[in-house]
């Protein structure tokens, strides 16, 4: 027994290394499993505050760009509002809208951290559970899709970017409604992949790809990007389609978080369906 302890003490460096490495790997795996330990959420507040401070400096460099985007969006919204009013004017009958209930709410948030150069990219937003953000909400900008909320602390939320290994967004081609899945294979942050589209479908480069509305995170019709090119791998029944994201992931400063009001109802009815 004494020999054994002597051995441990002589080799303590190696065993200490082993213990620490195992702890680190466990943390990696835990993190991959979507559920983080409580202490990491607590620190999220601290690091979140720090990142906000950094961001308040760095946002000055992108002010011009952010302003341009906001004004463009304002113009778009204004024209839509105008269109709406006109349509109302010409209406003869006043209808109490019972057919359409509002299903989605949008909440604006500032991006305090963002990356595009990793294999798995995340964003941090400056809104959290206090402002009503919960897990699995969709995040978009005025130019297109961004990602899905992964975790919330009191004042911050962390978002899995579309530029992530585990990101799978249900999408469809606007023109013909064909369904597929958006993935990102790493590398250039401007281009992604649309998979699972069967080869009998006719495609054209430049076709618009939008969200399908089949997930509870995104409403139907949010733009994702345009088809840049496609090919069929030998022996494959599906296209491999390269798309160009409409969102410039490298210059996101403001984003909208989407709240699906009917989410619980939808999840409940989907859960009642037999699996497979």
């Amino acid at each position: 027994m004494k020999n054994f302890f002597d051995f441990l003490i002589r080799q303590y460096f190696f065993f200490l290394f082993l213990i620490m490495e195992v702890i680190a790997i466990i943390m990696v795996v835990q993190n991959n499993y979507y559920q983080k330990a409580g202490f990491i959420n607590a620190t999220n507040e601290i690091t979140g505050r720090f990142l906000t401070t950094i961001n308040s400096v760095s946002q000055y460099f992108s002010l011009a760009d952010a302003n341009r985007k906001l004004s463009e969006e304002n113009a778009k919204l204004l024209s839509e509002a105008k269109k709406f009013r006109k349509a109302n004017d010409t209406k003869v009958y006043h209808s109490n809208d019972t057919i359409y209930t509002q299903q989605f709410e949008f909440m604006s948030a500032k991006v305090v951290r963002n990356s595009t150069n990793k294999r798995n990219n995340y964003l941090t937003l400056d809104k959290g559970s206090k402002q009503g953000i919960t897990k699995d909400m969709g995040v978009i900008t005025s130019t297109g899709i961004v990602g899905i909320v992964k975790e919330v602390s009191e004042n911050f939320s962390s978002v899995i970017s579309v530029l992530h290994k585990d990101s799978k967004i249900s999408a469809k081609i606007k023109k013909n409604g064909q369904l597929g899945t958006i993935e990102w294979s790493g590398g250039d942050y401007r281009y992604g992949e649309l998979i699972d589209v069967p080869t009998h479908v006719k495609l054209l480069t430049g076709d618009t790809v939008i969200t399908s509305g089949y997930s509870t995170s995104f409403p139907e019709g949010i733009i994702i990007g345009t088809i840049l090119g496609y090919k069929i791998e030998k022996g494959d029944d599906f296209y491999t389609i390269t798309i160009k994201f409409s969102t410039d992931f490298n210059s996101i400063s403001y984003a909208y978080v989407i709240k699906n009001i009917l989410k619980n109802e939808l999840n409940k009815i989907n859960k009642d369906l037999p699996n497979d």
Partner: peptide
Amino acid sequence: FTDTIGINTA
């Protein structure tokens, strides 16, 4: 700070 718990540590 990077939401990559464990990776840099390891």
